[in-house]
Simulated scan of single mutants.
Amino acid sequence: MRVVCVITEGFQHLDLAGPADVFATAGLVSRRAAYTLEVTSVVAGPVRASNGLATLVETPIDEVTGPIDTLLVAGGPTVDDHLRDPRLVAGVRRLAAGARRTGSVCTGAFLLAEAGLLDGGRATTHWLSAGDLARRYPAVETDPDAIYVRHGDVWTSAGVTAGIDLALAMVADDHGHRVARDVARGLVVYLHRPGGQSQFSAPIQAVPRSEPLKELQTWIDEHPEEDLSVPALARRMNLSERHFSRVFTDETGMPPGRYVEIARTGAARRLLETTDEPLDVVARRTGLGLSGSLYRVFRRHLRVSPGDYRRRFRDKEH
C-alpha cells in the first residue's frame, strides 16, 4: 500500500515522522499490513523542517506517477508561505484525484482546502489554527476540537502528534484494530484515541498568570471529589464570588465551572483507564455525582460514553 507524503520547506517534522513510523511499524507487526513510503515536494533535494532536520526528496511532485493508496500532506509553521505556490497546490490536487484516500496532519489541512479538497466537508486542524481555517475557507465545516475527522475518503487531523492517531486509525481501517493496537504498543504510544475525542485539555486551555490561581488549579485537579462550587472556591481564595469568577475567567479563558468539569472529566478518564471501579463509583470519586452525570460530561467533552472509553483505553496489564 503506497503512501506518498507531501512536505514543504519549514514543515513540522513530526507531522511526517509520526505517521511514517506508524505505517512502517504496521509492516513489522503484520506481514499483510505492508506499506511503502515516499516523500515528495515541489522540487527534489533536501527539504528542511522547522526543527532544522533535512529530509531528502528524490521525486518532485510534478513527476510522481502511478496509483497511490494514501496521500498525506504535512503541515507546519510556514504553511502560509506555500499556499500560493501553483505547482504545489496543483500537484496536491492531481495526486489526490488518483489516491484511494487523502489526509493531512495539522495545518496541512490548509493545503487541502486551498486545493478545494475540503469544500462541502468537515475537517479539523491544530486548535490554534482552526479559527483561521474556518475564516479563510467558509466552504469547509471546521471542527476545532476533534483529534481527527474522516469525511468520505478525506481525513484530517489536529496538531503534530495527532498525526499518529490519524495513521493508527487508517491502519485500523485497513487491517483491523488488533494490528493498530500492536503498532501502538510497539511505538509505546497511547492506543488509538477516537477521532471525536477532544484535542483540548484543561492544562492546554487554562494557564493562569498568578501563582495563587495556579495553586488553586493544582488543588482542583488533585481533589475532584471536594466541593468545587464557585462559592467554595471563592472562599478558598478569600475573594468575593463575583470577583473570583471574573479573575479566574480573565486569566484562564474559561469560567471556573467549566474548568472544574474538565478537571473532573480528566480524573474520571484516569480511573476508567486504570481501575475496574463501577461507573457510579467513578462518578462519585470524581465529584460528578451519579453515573448519568458521568455519561453526559463524557459525551460533551470526549464524544464517547464512559463504557466505550474504558473499552478503548483500559490498560490490559492493570
Rank of each mutant, 00 (worst) to 15 (best):
R100S: 10
G45C: 10
F23Q: 01
D21H: 13
G108D: 06
G52P: 10
P46Y: 14
A26I: 02
R48L: 09
Y35L: 06
L28Y: 15
T40H: 10
G120L: 06
L56I: 11
L53D: 10
E58W: 13
E114R: 09
L28M: 15
G66M: 07
A113Q: 02
G76D: 03
A44K: 10
G91T: 00
P86A: 07
R93N: 05
A20S: 07
V43I: 13
A54T: 13
A96G: 04
V29T: 04
G45W: 14
R48W: 11
H82I: 04
T70A: 07
I61M: 02
L117Y: 02
L28E: 13
V64E: 08
A115F: 04
L117N: 00
R94I: 04
T70N: 10
L53S: 12
R93H: 11
L72Y: 01
V57G: 05
A49V: 07
R100H: 09
V39E: 12
T40S: 14
D62K: 11
V43E: 14
P77I: 10
L117D: 00
G121N: 04
R87Q: 07
T55V: 14
T55F: 15
V73I: 09
G18E: 00
A54E: 15
L16C: 05
L71D: 00
T102F: 11
D81S: 12
A96E: 03
G120A: 05
T107I: 05
R87S: 06
A90C: 05
R122D: 06
T78W: 12
L117R: 01
S30W: 11
D85L: 08
D80P: 08
V47M: 10
D15C: 03
D80V: 07
R122A: 09
D85Q: 09
G18F: 01
A109D: 08
P60Y: 11
V89A: 02
G18Q: 01
I68N: 04
R94Q: 04
V39I: 15
